[in-house]
Amino acid sequence: MTVLEVRDLYKGFGGVQAVAGISFGVAEGELLAMIGPNGAGKSTCFNMLNGQLRPDGGSVHLNGRDITGLPPRDVSRLGVGRTFQITATFGSMTVAENVQTTLIAHHRGLRGLWRPAAALHRDAAMALLERVGMAEQADRACGVLAYGDLKRVELAVALANDPMLLLMDEPTAGMAPGERVELMALTAEITRERNIAVLFTEHDMDVVFTHADRVIVLNRGKLIAEGTPEDVRANRRVRELYLGESAEAG
């Protein structure tokens, strides 16, 4: 079943068409990679899906529901989890509190003025941290974690609102090659077992070709190729515009 359905999306900035008519879909349990050169429109496209930007034209549907132009918090409440290129966590809270805050938000409990939040949803938070391998570090401050661990926390936070779609912006940026593979393997495992649709952008072609079920390629705001990793790797235009000669080496 199609979870995310993007139809004919347009966005321009001062005369430049950043995204010029893009359509695609992501199915349940599928990992779809979006690749392309810098300035191809990936970020713009991503930000229209998560609500940070309002499209000039076209529509975005989540499970058949029109979410075009909704602000990020509403998109989130409808079941979209996100991770960021540069991790975004709450630095003044512990790892567990980061997840707990997300759970409290998910259960609409943020208006509480008296009962300490530290006791709320603690078990559920621990279960999620267990799943991403961060349970031992649950009571450490997010600010002192190693980068790879921070990425795991972000994954747990993104899963905490029980999403049907996960949007991951360059999930492995800034990680060592070994950690990249581990993190994406974990992501793939969890999202498949929960039947979550995943859309991610990525510069590391190893990650893309190892973990993606399907790949779409953007260039100058348009979709220039779509298909399995093998198809895309073999596509001549993609090699010319993006992958370059060293594609074999990867």
Binding site: P37, N38, H203, G244, S246
Partner: peptide
């Protein structure tokens, strides 16, 4: 860092 493979070359 963060550059497309062609630009890296």
């Amino acid at each position: 860092e963060g550059l497309a493979p062609v630009i890296v070359d």
